[in-house]
């Protein structure tokens, strides 16, 4: 798999990253190096092995269904660039 300049432009836009056109080829080169490095893994024979979602030899722990958090709107909003009446406010999102 190789990444071209067009792919860089697309994933940058999906990730909301501003990468100027003149830098996109350079970024593509860097990403291709990373991919080539990861692709060494293809040399390992994984025939008959179930794919893993996580390499830890452990399973998910759960907590009881008890409410112990909340009731602190001002703490949650403390770092918000803009707020009104305990709401976060953002530039109008039009659909």
């Amino acid at each position: 798999m190789t990444i071209d300049q067009k792919t860089v432009a697309k994933i940058a836009s999906l990730a909301r990253l501003k990468i100027p056109v003149e830098e996109q080829n350079a970024v593509a080169g860097e990403l291709n190096k990373i991919l080539a490095w990861v692709e060494q893994l293809n040399e390992v024979d994984v025939e008959g092995i179930e794919p893993l979602a996580n390499v830890n030899d452990a399973f998910l722990r759960a907590r009881p269904d008890v409410v112990t958090e909340g009731g602190s709107a001002q703490d949650i909003l403390a770092n918000a660039p803009s707020q009104t009446a305990d709401f976060f406010t953002v530039p109008k999102v039009v659909e």
């Binding site: 112990t68 958090e69 909340g70 009731g71 602190s72 709107a73 949650i76 909003l77 305990d86 709401f87």
Partner: peptide, 17 residues
Amino acid sequence: SAAATTFGAAPNAQVSL
């Protein structure tokens, strides 16, 4: 998270970090 789920609470009153 351990924040409550009830409908109609005051804005951002049921929000955890």
